[in-house]
């Protein structure tokens, strides 16, 4: 029952976050979605990921959004969509239905494997991936610093003639 509640909360807040007018509110609803996802992940047995999701999705990412908005100074926007809402909804729904047709029903008769812990996998079997991810994070930080660097001249490559 708890899981159903978490799912409902998630879907509700996700819907709100893409439909509210204020960007700040949208970011907060995204945080709620993330919290719901973290709860569901915990119930599914993925304890470590639940914690990571909670701290990153509910903590870090909304802060980033708020930070970006404070840099831009614009917080509200809701122009009419280019693609009619019904068409977009129909397409998304069609996509989901077909995806469901290909995936479902899922055979849930899971067999119990030899239990390996998360940290074992992460730091031993996938140590290279970990390394690459760490490099990736640093690369991300460096690129953001470079992007946000305020230059007097316009960044090279972007030349627009009015």
């Amino acid at each position: 029952m708890l899981s159903v509640a978490a799912v409902l909360v998630m879907l509700f807040s996700a819907l709100l976050s893409i439909s509210v007018r204020w960007l700040l509110t949208a970011a907060l609803w995204l945080a709620v979605t993330s919290a719901g996802a973290a709860a569901l992940l915990y119930m599914l047995g993925a304890h470590e990921i639940a914690v990571i999701e909670f701290s990153v999705g509910t903590g870090l990412v909304p802060v980033l959004f708020v930070f970006a908005m404070s840099l831009m100074g614009r917080t509200s926007s809701m122009p009419t969509p280019i693609i009619p809402r019904t068409a977009a909804g129909g397409l998304a729904l069609l996509c989901l239905v077909l995806l469901g047709l290909t995936l479902l029903p899922i055979n849930t008769a899971g067999q119990d494997k030899v239990p390996i812990t998360f940290s074992q996998i992460l730091w031993q079997d996938r140590s290279l991936d970990m390394l690459v991810q760490i490099v990736l994070i640093f690369a991300g930080i460096i690129s953001v610093l470079n992007i946000l660097r305020r230059t007097d001249a316009e960044p090279p490559g972007i030349r627009h003639d009015h």
Binding site: V7, M10, L11, A14, L15, L40, L44, C95, L96
Partner: peptide, 12 residues
């Protein structure tokens, strides 16, 4: 519930 969440979030 998990599968429903996946589909719902993807659709949204």
């Amino acid at each position: 519930a998990g599968i429903a969440a996946v589909f719902g979030l993807l659709g949204i």
